[in-house]
Amino acid sequence: MSLRNKVTLIGRTGKDVEIVKFENGKIAKVSLATTDHYTNGLGEKVEETQWHNLTANGKIADIMEKYVDKGKEIAVEGKIVYRNYEDKEGIKRYSTDIRVDQLVLLSGK
């Protein structure tokens, strides 16, 4: 993986893993919440959550399908992938995903 497009995230999954099967394999999809805490200029403590769409294939998809449930804490490393497509109404939509290359399971069941 190139160091020019690399992301590392630690967070909790927002739903159970969705598996999309194809003739020659499958893709695992799940959302990941990362939360940052800081104090703003007024001295107030602020909690800010960002949501990330994760996709994985191959052995990582197998591991995610078997071991990752909603609320599981995981660490991932991968690359940012930008996609665009037209929806059913013909409106152009944009999506940003993290294509997972490495996965670490941090919390037990």
Results as ranks from 00 to 15, higher is better:
Lys21Leu: 14
Ser95Met: 13
Lys45Ile: 01
Ile91Pro: 05
Met64Glu: 14
Ser31Thr: 05
Glu89Val: 06
Trp51Gln: 06
Val20His: 11
Thr8Ala: 03
Ala61Gln: 11
Lys59Pro: 00
Ala28Glu: 05
Lys59Cys: 04
Lys66Val: 11
Gly78Asn: 08
Lys66Leu: 12
Thr34Asp: 14
Ile74Lys: 00
Thr13Ala: 02
Val30His: 00
Asp97Met: 08
Glu73Gly: 13
Ile91Glu: 12
Ala61Cys: 10
Ile74Ser: 00
Glu48Phe: 03
Ile80Asn: 04
Lys21Ile: 15
Asp16Cys: 05
Lys109Tyr: 13
Val17Ser: 11
Glu73Cys: 13
Glu89Trp: 07
Leu103Gly: 00
Ser31His: 00
Asn40Met: 06
Val30Gln: 03
Lys6Gly: 05
Leu3Trp: 11
Arg99Glu: 13
Ile10Phe: 08
Ile80Ser: 03
Arg12Ile: 05
His37Asn: 09
Asn40Gly: 12
Gly71Trp: 05
Lys66Met: 10
Lys109Trp: 15
Asn84Met: 10
Val81Glu: 09
Lys26Thr: 05
Ala56Phe: 08
Ile63Leu: 09
Thr96Asp: 00
Tyr85Phe: 12
Leu54Pro: 05
Ala56Thr: 07
Asp97Tyr: 13
Lys109Cys: 13
Ile10Cys: 07
Gly58Ser: 12
Leu103Met: 03
His52Ile: 00
Lys6Asn: 13
Lys70Met: 04
Trp51Asn: 05
Asp101Tyr: 08
Leu42Trp: 11
Thr8Pro: 02
Lys109Ile: 15
Leu105Pro: 06
Arg4Thr: 14
Leu32His: 03
Thr34Gln: 11
Lys92Phe: 02
Gly14Leu: 03
Val30Thr: 05
Thr39Glu: 10
Ala56Tyr: 08
Lys109Met: 13
Lys6Cys: 14
Asn24Gly: 02
Tyr82His: 09
Asn24Ala: 07
Lys45Arg: 15
Val20Trp: 03
Leu106Thr: 10
Glu65Tyr: 09
Thr39Phe: 04
Asn84Tyr: 10
Met64Lys: 01
Gln102Cys: 12
Lys6Met: 15
Gly108Thr: 11
Leu105Ala: 02
Thr55Met: 11
Gly90Tyr: 11
Ser107Glu: 07
Leu32Met: 02
Glu47Gly: 12
Val7Tyr: 04
Arg83Ser: 07
Lys29Trp: 02
Thr96Ala: 10
Thr35Trp: 01
Val76Phe: 00
Gly43Pro: 12
Thr39Asn: 06
